[in-house]
Amino acid sequence: MAYLRGTFCAGYRTTSRCEGINAFIKGFLKSTDSVLELVHSLDQVVKDYRNNEVTAQFYSAYYTPVLTTSLDLIELFATKVNTRAVFREVKKQIKGVATLLIRGKESISMTSVYQFSKMGKPNKTHRVLYDPNEEKIECECSMWNSEGIPCSHIFCVMKFEGLEEIPARLILSRWCKDAKDRRSKPPQVTDGHRGRLL
């Protein structure tokens, strides 16, 4: 954790993802398989992965989760933008706002610095910087930098500032419902030197 703080890892800190894939593939393979059977088995693995992906995409597009937090406008916005799996993680952070206590707020021109502590842990505080001009919210816990999901401290600042939507700077395109649509668009080719570089 000490070495990875602030480094984007999409929430993975171990080789568990790779080990999970290996275990999944082992379910389709046998040590006695011929090369042809191995290819057929791997083809089945790929089909299974694609089926799971299409199912997850369908649920993200056509199912609306039940809103259960007190920050219902932010939660509703998150359901419209994020995939279902990412929304579950975002919702955990939104729920975490209820356990935070504000310890202070300092303002320097338009920029504000909030200090929060968790209930039952008054000595451990986190500072969050908020600049409304640039729509910039940064927390020293670095959860946003390492996982790409805003932390409960950031959501708490959004609550105090009366924000109803998650700022665009805090939304990773890879976690959005339309991530595939964005990826499939061909790059814009421009004339001149830049176009040649592309």
Rank of each mutant, 00 (worst) to 15 (best):
A179G: 02
C156E: 15
F24G: 00
E134A: 10
I108P: 01
L198N: 05
F8C: 13
L170F: 06
T64F: 06
T111N: 05
I149W: 01
S109V: 13
P150C: 06
L71H: 09
F24C: 04
S184A: 00
L29Y: 03
G27M: 07
T64N: 11
V46Q: 11
D178E: 12
C18V: 14
F58N: 06
V157G: 06
S184D: 10
M119W: 03
T125N: 09
T69Q: 07
G96Y: 09
G96Q: 09
H126P: 00
K185E: 15
G6K: 02
R5M: 03
E164H: 11
F28P: 02
R5A: 02
Y63C: 10
S109G: 03
Q115H: 05
Y3M: 03
E19W: 01
F24A: 13
F28M: 06
T83K: 15
E89K: 15
G195D: 02
S31K: 10
C18G: 06
A61C: 08
T99S: 14
L197Y: 11
K159W: 13
K180Q: 12
G120N: 11
Q93M: 15
G11W: 04
D178F: 10
R182E: 09
T32K: 11
K26M: 08
T15K: 13
G11E: 04
E140S: 06
S70K: 13
W144E: 01
V128P: 04
F28Q: 04
D131A: 13
T32H: 08
